Simulated assay, not measured.
Amino acid sequence: MSPTERTRTLRRRMVVEARRATIEHGLHGFTIEQLCETVGVSRRTFFNHFASKDDAVLGIEQGAMSELLAAYADGSLVPMDLDPLGSIVALAIEQMHVVGLDRADEALVRRVFDAEPLMVAKFLAAADVQLAAVGQAVRERFGWIDPDDRRAQLVAEAAAGLLKVTAGTYFDDAFDESTGPSFDALLTDNLRQLRAAITTTGQDHTA
């Protein structure tokens, strides 16, 4: 296992254990020290990855998104010949590969929200911050620097809608992961359908 893979595995253990502890004891029913003891890491290691216990529960790793967005903006992460919406979809796929995608873990998140409803608002606030950061990265990548140019925001919001629809399908309890498409394939197909919907006259129902 490479150092990068070990780091990702450790980060994932901290997130999963933070979520399990929240479900069992509530967000205020355990300390960072107890979480570190369970995972077998120091406080210093914990804070190298997460700014707070809340961030660990939500899986918000310090600096991880900033690095991805910087690489996206300068063209070193996804090909520069992609159009704006396609480039964000490619970015989302890269992010999923870095963070990892686990339907069982998503079920943990739902249980966290049931146990701590206030975490939903924190999750939505974090999503808004991330969406704004994606929009800024799109501006930098495509040179849309005019403050009145709303294309970057529109593209970022459209991509967020694609991800929401894709996640809604992929994480649905009725979805069969063994026979259904991968998240990447589902997201890519939803992008295709969105493009078809935008360009169709409304008469062709087979696009």
Results as ranks from 00 to 15, higher is better:
residue 2 S to H: 03
residue 3 P to S: 02
residue 11 R to W: 00
residue 13 R to L: 07
residue 15 V to S: 02
residue 17 E to H: 09
residue 19 R to V: 02
residue 20 R to C: 01
residue 20 R to S: 07
residue 20 R to H: 11
residue 23 I to N: 04
residue 24 E to I: 04
residue 24 E to M: 04
residue 25 H to M: 04
residue 28 H to L: 07
residue 37 E to R: 06
residue 38 T to K: 13
residue 45 T to G: 01
residue 47 F to L: 00
residue 48 N to D: 11
residue 48 N to A: 12
residue 52 S to P: 07
residue 53 K to F: 00
residue 57 V to W: 08
residue 60 I to D: 05
residue 64 A to E: 11
residue 64 A to D: 08
residue 67 E to V: 14
residue 67 E to R: 15
residue 69 L to H: 05
residue 72 Y to S: 05
residue 74 D to G: 01
residue 74 D to Y: 04
residue 76 S to P: 07
residue 77 L to K: 07
residue 87 S to P: 05
residue 87 S to W: 08
residue 91 L to D: 10
residue 92 A to L: 15
residue 93 I to V: 15
residue 96 M to D: 11
residue 98 V to D: 12
residue 101 L to E: 06
residue 102 D to Q: 09
residue 106 E to H: 15
residue 106 E to P: 01
residue 108 L to W: 10
residue 109 V to D: 04
residue 111 R to S: 14
residue 116 E to G: 02
residue 117 P to H: 03
residue 123 F to S: 12
residue 124 L to N: 14
residue 125 A to G: 12
residue 125 A to E: 15
residue 129 V to S: 13
residue 132 A to W: 01
residue 132 A to L: 08
residue 132 A to H: 08
residue 133 A to M: 06
residue 135 G to K: 03
residue 140 E to D: 13
residue 141 R to F: 03
residue 142 F to R: 03
residue 143 G to H: 05
residue 143 G to N: 08
residue 146 D to N: 13
residue 147 P to M: 07
residue 148 D to R: 14
residue 150 R to L: 14
residue 151 R to M: 12
residue 151 R to P: 08
residue 155 V to A: 05
residue 156 A to P: 02
residue 160 A to I: 01
residue 161 G to Q: 05
residue 166 T to R: 04
residue 166 T to W: 05
residue 169 T to R: 08
residue 171 F to L: 11
residue 173 D to Q: 11
residue 175 F to D: 02
residue 181 P to G: 07
residue 186 L to W: 09
residue 188 T to V: 13
residue 189 D to T: 13
residue 190 N to M: 08
residue 190 N to Q: 12
residue 190 N to R: 11
residue 195 R to F: 06
residue 195 R to L: 12
residue 195 R to I: 15
residue 197 A to P: 02
residue 197 A to E: 14
residue 200 T to H: 11
residue 203 Q to P: 01
residue 207 A to C: 09
